[in-house]
């Protein structure tokens, strides 16, 4: 008796059944992984009271209290004083009045958010820019002590950066780089550079040098060959490296809390300082965290198609 074999698929391919099992596992994992994110985003739209009820409310009356609390500074007033005020003119004033408070001014959140963007993307740009140039040089040119230099670059990553925190703090104070955007960009660039040089060198090594040689013979300088041929080929590696660098500098907490307090403070040290009255203001913190997550998610989605490796390597005959 012959068994029924589905001849439409190759023996190396998974069966429909095993694909279904795989999909099932992935969906379960995704569901578990998304719970904390969901919790944060829903908390952002809960009222202060709903946010701390136990067990947590799945269904709740959406409120913009978190957003308002995050973006304003408020003071508590006596009932008599509140009564003496004219009725609230805007929706956010209404929300604040309900808690017996008045708006004293805007909060510092958005300034901190801009700081995070400037420092995060700024240092990512410099890490990737310098990293690409260095990686290209290490990949293509004869450099004396090349291996030792590469090891030195890697070794800067070998001890925890925070171990150098005190010397850096003193150095920055002398140089006037404490609490400046420039100081933080330089610091994160230095920390990320070793990762970026090593990652990118791997990617550039894989680009056959024949491409540049062909361009040189075709009448181009090395620089224009680099921009016209190598850079588009390295896009995959550059995208991946940029995401790694951004994630590090975006999330960095220890140096940020040590070296920034006002002008250049980023969101990681700022978010824990959002305190409500009689406890933490969870909706405001959740709103801040949700906004904090957005840029990295957007950046990753934009660069996603470059992350799929191997698309452009098809013209290579080996």
């Amino acid at each position: 008796m012959s068994t029924n074999i589905d001849t439409s698929r190759s023996p190396l391919e998974a069966t429909a059944f095993s694909k279904r099992i795989a999909a099932f596992i992935v969906i379960i994992y995704a569901a578990i992984a998304i719970i904390p994110m969901l919790l944060i985003v829903t908390t952002a739209f809960k009222s202060t009271t709903d946010a701390i009820t136990y067990p947590p409310k799945i269904l709740f009356k959406p409120s913009l209290e978190g957003v308002v609390n995050l973006s304003t500074q408020r003071t508590r007033q006596s009932k008599e004083y509140l009564k003496s005020l004219p009725p609230p003119r805007t929706w956010y004033e209404k929300i604040v009045r309900k808690r017996q408070m008045v708006i004293a001014g805007p909060s510092r959140f958005f300034q901190r958010f801009v700081n995070s963007l400037v420092i995060g993307f700024g240092s990512t740009f410099f890490s990737v820019f310098l990293g690409t140039l260095a990686a290209y040089a290490f990949s293509r040119f004869k450099i004396p002590l090349k291996d030792d230099l590469l090891f030195f670059i890697l070794s800067t990553r070998m001890f925890p950066p925070i171990a150098a925190a005190v010397p850096i703090f003193l150095m920055y104070r002398k140089l006037g780089l404490n609490d400046t955007h420039l100081g933080m960009i330089v610091l994160y660039t230095v920390v990320n550079l070793s990762l970026s040089v090593w990652l990118l060198k791997g990617f550039i090594d894989e680009i056959p040098k024949e491409y540049e040689e062909a361009a040189l013979v075709d009448g181009y300088s090395r620089l224009s060959a680099f921009f016209k041929i190598i850079l588009p080929q390295a896009a995959t590696g550059i995208a991946a490296t940029a995401i790694f660098c951004l994630i590090f500098s975006w999330n960095e907490y220890a140096f940020a809390i040590l070296l920034t307090f006002r002008e250049a403070q980023t969101l990681p040290p700022f978010i824990p300082t959002i305190i409500g009255e009689g406890g933490l203001d969870w909706p405001a913190i959740a709103t801040a965290t949700s906004i904090f997550m957005l840029p990295v998610i957007v950046f990753t989605i934009i660069l996603r198609k470059h992350l799929l490796r191997g698309i452009t390597f098809g013209a290579v005959r080996k």
Partner: peptide, 20 residues
């Protein structure tokens, strides 16, 4: 001289086309 100055054309054994 630099390669560009020599005005020669080179056909490589492999990796011949710009993939992008």
């Amino acid at each position: 001289s630099q390669p560009a100055e020599r005005d020669v054309a080179f056909v490589f054994q492999q990796y011949s086309l710009y993939p992008n």
